[in-house]
């Protein structure tokens, strides 16, 4: 019964002694070959969940089955079946990229003959071939992340766990990293469990999404279903001069749900922004309504949150800088104490 899911989680609970209720009873399944996005703000319980699924943390209650194997009963077999990209870098900076991969392969019991081809292949597909002989401490942030990915794939895992793999990367680096994930998925059949606090990352990649907050899953579903719940995209249309006639014209465009006028600025809500752009432009073909600007706003995590919890996203103004700072904080937390 378990084998038809790559991951099966039932009422999973983690309480850090004495009373930090990090994960408060979550359940979900991931079918084989899918990408599952686990979305939530800092401190929501993402890393705790990943740690339990990857046998690094013992669940307080509940059950988790990964690759058909119970994580509490046979942790070593689970470890053999999974790959893991940690939130923080784990490569040894004093070793070269290739050496890091060789050590990882050895830890999975692979002989050097066995792993050589695999390592070459992964280094090539992560664009690390040239850098493979250099020490990792000289790598850029993006290269380090790609190396982590290569390391986690060396034993060809069935299920790959990515814990906020793009934290601390600039937008370009983030986009790049996900391109490699897509590339990797073309080359091998693997189930991916990824956590992130960026909605756009799950939006472009995940087949299914669960949103976790305060240790509880507050919403689950496909991307479209989730976006649907928060009212989909918002399109901002700025015109030379706004008129009530234009409001009516925009509202009449198919699939448009709501139009709000703020002077010369119109906010148009609809499930899929791109699909209605040309119709919106046509609707503006009225005297005096020349378009001065138009842009599609994706539903933000903030809005998902507002919709689902009735409160603003806990970390307002979350941005790249904060992401980097929080990553450094996590590193310190793990190291300190």
């Amino acid at each position: 019964m378990d084998s038809k899911h790559a991951i099966m989680v039932e009422d999973l609970v983690k309480t850090y002694p004495p009373d930090v209720h990090a994960v408060k009873g979550i359940s979900f399944q991931v079918p084989p070959g899918q990408i599952f996005g686990f979305l939530g703000p800092n401190g929501a319980g993402k890393t705790t969940t990943v740690s339990m699924l990857t046998t690094l943390l013992r669940p307080t209650k509940g059950r988790a089955v990964v690759g058909g194997i119970d994580v509490a009963e046979e942790p070593r077999r689970v470890r053999r079946a999974i790959g893991l990209v940690f939130q923080d870098s784990t490569a040894d900076g004093e070793l070269t990229g290739r050496e890091n991969m060789e050590v990882a392969a050895g830890l999975f019991g692979m002989s050097s003959a066995e792993c050589r081809g695999r390592i070459d292949e992964l280094l090539a597909s992560m664009d690390l071939k040239e850098a493979a002989g250099r020490r990792v401490k000289g790598y850029s942030g993006g290269m380090k992340r790609r190396l982590e990915l290569a390391v986690s794939l060396v034993h060809t895992p069935e299920v790959l766990f990515l814990d906020e793999p793009t934290i601390g990367l600039d937008p370009q680096g983030r986009a790049g990293f996900w391109r490699y994930i897509s590339q990797m998925r073309k080359e091998q059949e693997v189930t991916v469990f990824m956590t992130t606090h960026y909605l756009d990352e799950v939006e472009n990649l995940a087949d299914r999404v669960s949103i976790i907050d305060h240790g509880k899953i507050i919403a689950s579903g496909s991307n479209d279903a989730l976006k649907e719940r928060v009212g989909g995209d918002e399109i901002e249309v700025r015109v030379g001069k706004g008129t009530p006639v234009l409001t009516t014209a925009l509202s009449a465009v198919p699939t448009v749900r709501e139009v709000k006028r703020e002077g010369d600025l119109y906010r148009v809500k609809c499930p899929r922004g791109e699909a209605v752009l040309s119709s919106l432009v046509k609707a503006c073909d009225l005297p005096g309504a020349s378009i001065e600007g138009i842009r599609v706003l994706r539903p933000s995590l903030d809005r998902v949150f507002l919709e689902l919890t009735g409160k603003a996203y806990r970390e307002e103004g979350y941005d790249e800088g904060r992401a980097a700072a929080s990553s450094a904080f996590h590193r310190r937390r793990q190291g300190g104490g």
Partner: peptide, 14 residues
Amino acid sequence: KQLGILQRTISTPA
């Protein structure tokens, strides 16, 4: 421990 290398090591079946 501080660099996460130990975490990586104990996440393997070694």
